[in-house]
Amino acid sequence: MDRITATDSVDTTQEVLSAVGLSKGFGVTPTNNLIIDGLDLTIRRGEFVCVVGPSGTGKTTLLRCLSGLEPITGGDLRFDGAPIIGPPRHLGMVFQDYTRSLMPWKSVLQNVIFPLKDKGISKTEMRERAMESLAAVGLAGHESKAPWQLSGGMQQRVAIARALAYRPHLLLMDEPFASVDAQTRTELEDLVLDLHTRFGTTVLLVTHDVDEAVYLGDRVIVLGGKPSSVREVVPIGLARPRDQVETKTIPEFAESRAHVLKLIMNR
């Protein structure tokens, strides 16, 4: 077992994130303008859960609510058992647009170390964690570069390394591979799977790509409806470790994929 572990306790049945009857609306009277209503969701330690839904269902809005960046309009939302008011301390996040989430005036290493500051971690340990994470995402040797000197895929790796070094109880990913090309996308998908296996990181990944969701997840939560809620939770029975070529030839992959796709298309 590697030295880096994402969680303190190994209780895999513990709920990291739980939402009951979550609703979110905007405007002067949000309750009259609900985007999300009656959404129930549970993420347990060690899981890899994907969220999919038709365009416009408010996947990003949901993620912003779950991360505490947006206040919810109604319902019960807890992180590690405690109600969420603002982003929880042990939450990490990777956004879709890496150019906007990395700081161009800092080096790759400084970007990864940044969230660790003021958290009571010694300088040596901060640096150690950062270097380990960068190595884990395959960026050893690139620490002194500026983010904009790297390719898109590499920049997203920096963002992932930053989240990893933070050792969150839950890693939220908002369409993290939408802005890279298809080939890089498969590389990054496998990278995240690898990190999940090695470090036991709990992941909640939002994506519009059904193949990706089925390939990556233990469960796929399908959103739907207006206002949106959970349409169905599809368990994925595919064995791990997964493989981009082999797993996708298994009949069960196609079945799960078809099932999810039908749910999305029927609204």
Binding site: M93, R100, M103
Partner: peptide, 25 residues
């Protein structure tokens, strides 16, 4: 960019550090 603010909030960056290392640059 609001993305900066999101990062600062998610990763619990202290106010002064936000000012000096994110806003000013």
């Amino acid at each position: 960019d609001s993305a900066l603010g999101d990062i600062a909030r998610v990763y619990a960056i202290r106010r002064w550090r936000q000012l000096l290392h994110m806003t000013l640059p």
